[in-house]
């Protein structure tokens, strides 16, 4: 079998919550090692799709396969090859950051959970806070810990449900860098977002979910071609508030809660 099985294959997916038809026949494929963004407004059904793919929810109709395994009939195999970072940081508040990572490593039956945890703490700039209870972490630190927990065991497919919601600009850049690093290492990333620029910056392919269906699916260039050709206009280029904010904060020196190394602060 040489033909590449797509990392994620979704066909005719339907799901209703009582009278509300959230998904009305969703089709898309995600190629291995790519970053795929599912774009949609609040309530479009992005989380529903992710939860079905993560075997947390059963679809009413249609098929969904992850790494070639059907989510309905081979849920255990699917879980073996995925990791889910849900919409809200699913971390244990009472445990320390390190204990959270060790817990996941042990549940994935890995040898040496300690070193695995330490390496991730280092990579996500959480080493200083490793022994602190997560309840004392900032939103950005929680999110980073959350993503770090998802990377344990190197699952080939990772689902990130609105990974940057509620993050400050540095936190967001840190998450973006982490996503790029994952894809470079060959991991398939399916992320959902309602921020257009996020999809634009990160994704190899973008699918727009609207009223329960994928209404567009393509690369950024392809999507751009669907619209009237670009007109040339001369506009004074003002720095955005985000540019200003990041510049000022970067000058301010290093902050333990700054983004992942190699992103926000130049050393």
């Amino acid at each position: 079998m040489t033909a590449q099985v797509p990392a994620v294959h979704v066909q005719g997916l339907e799901k209703s919550y009582e009278e509300l038809r959230v998904l009305r026949g969703v089709d898309f494929d995600v190629a291995r090692g790519s970053i795929f963004a599912l774009l949609g407004s609040n309530g479009a059904g992005k989380t529903t799709i992710v939860n079905i793919l993560a075997t947390l929810l059963k679809p009413d109709a249609g098929t969904a396969r992850v790494s070639g395994f059907d989510v309905a009939t081979h849920a255990a195999d699917v879980r073996q090859s995925i990791s889910l970072t849900g919409q809200f940081a699913a971390v244990d508040e009472v445990l320390s950051g390190r204990e959270n990572l060790v817990l996941v490593a042990r549940l994935r039956h890995l040898k040496d959970p300690g070193p695995i945890a330490d390496a991730l703490l280092e990579r996500f700039a959480l080493a200083d806070a490793a022994e602190r209870r997560v309840s004392t972490y900032s939103g950005g630190m929680r999110r980073r810990l959350d993503i770090a927990m998802s990377l344990i065991g190197n699952p080939p497919v990772i689902f990130l449900d609105e990974p940057t919601t509620g993050l400050d600009p540095q936190g967001r850049l840190g998450v973006w860098q982490a996503v790029r690093d994952l894809a470079e290492a060959g991991t398939t990333v399916l992320l959902t977002t309602q921020h257009l620029d996020e999809a634009e910056h990160l994704a190899d392919r973008i699918a727009i979910l609207h009223e329960g269906r994928i209404i567009q699916n393509g690369t950024l260039t392809e999507l751009k071609q669907l619209h009237p050709p670009a007109r040339v206009e001369y506009v004074e280029k003002q720095p955005t508030l985000e540019d200003i904010f990041l510049a000022i904060v970067a000058e301010d020196g290093t902050d333990s809660d700054a983004a992942i190394p190699g992103t926000a602060t130049d050393e």
Partner: peptide
Amino acid sequence: KSGIFERFHSMPI
């Protein structure tokens, strides 16, 4: 409520 249940349930345990 915290979502940690969903994390556990999406893991191979």
